[in-house]
């Protein structure tokens, strides 16, 4: 495997792993969603992301080798997307933070002439819907009942420290990071306030400076997620499925 040998590969892995890992997490909702209509909605988002992941990983190598045979330290996804689902509010908070970011990022990539432009041009439409879904639920949970408000606020607060990483530079990805960060903050603030919630005010990154997902440093739940995801594939080396 030519892991991250070129800037293009590094960038493709970062984007591809984000999509792959978040898709996997959303897939864990199957059979557990709060209402049947939401089973269908969450699965749609998960399928979009999985499709994106497959295209992106295929730019670097064999999609299955990359998904199933890499060790934890070789995954390049941001820590935000690997965070466990928690309750529905936590999943929605994760979706809000990530999908607004992904929408703006893919918008920039689609408008540029870089290697990701064609892929981003298709994906940006999917992601617009993911963002819409997250925003609508943020409004309903924030401005719903006392309980849902409290849960949503807690979820936004808890995940806030994983958002800073989304704006760190990624080699091979030429984007206007200032615009990305400002656009993200403005959009998230607008939705959060409309939902009668408060934008968290803590630091946007953890205190530990060893690095983050883009450097292959992940949170503890990620190892267990990978163990589950990779176990069957690895139990039958060389098999086709």
């Amino acid at each position: 495997m030519t892991l991250g040998e070129t800037p293009l590969a590094t960038a493709a892995l970062a984007l591809g792993d984000d999509a792959l890992v978040l898709s996997h997490r959303l897939g864990e909702w199957a059979g557990h969603a709060p209402v049947l209509e939401e089973e269908v909605a969450l699965a749609n988002i998960a399928l979009d992301l999985l499709g994106q992941a497959r295209s992106l990983l295929s730019l670097v190598g064999d999609e299955d080798e990359l998904a199933y045979l890499r060790e934890e330290r070789s995954f390049r996804n941001a820590q935000l997307v690997e965070q466990p689902n928690g309750d529905f509010a936590r999943t929605i908070a994760r979706q809000l933070y990530f999908s607004v970011h992904q929408h703006l990022l893919y918008g920039q990539l689609a408008a540029g002439d870089g290697p990701f432009a064609p892929l981003a041009g298709k994906a940006v439409k999917e992601v617009a819907y993911h963002r819409d879904h997250a925003e609508h639920w943020t409004l309903r949970l924030g401005d719903g009942t006392e309980e849902s408000h409290a849960r949503m606020q807690r979820a936004l607060d808890d995940l806030w420290r994983y958002t800073g990483e989304l704006f760190e530079p990624v080699e091979g990805l030429s984007v206007d990071r200032t615009a990305l960060r400002e656009g993200w903050l403005a959009a998230v603030t607008e939705v959060v306030e409309r939902a009668t919630l408060k934008l968290p005010d803590g630091p946007q990154t953890g205190a530990w400076t060893a690095g983050a997902g883009r450097q292959g440093i992940h949170t503890e739940p990620f190892g267990r997620m990978l163990a589950e995801m990779q176990h069957l594939h690895r139990s039958h080396p060389g098999a086709s499925w």
Binding site: V35, E37, V40, A41, D132, H133, H136, R140
Partner: peptide, 20 residues
Amino acid sequence: SLHAPDAEMALRNARDLYTR
């Protein structure tokens, strides 16, 4: 048909369910 709390969500649920 389907269930939804309001019109906006009904449209989205319909999109997911009937046009996937």
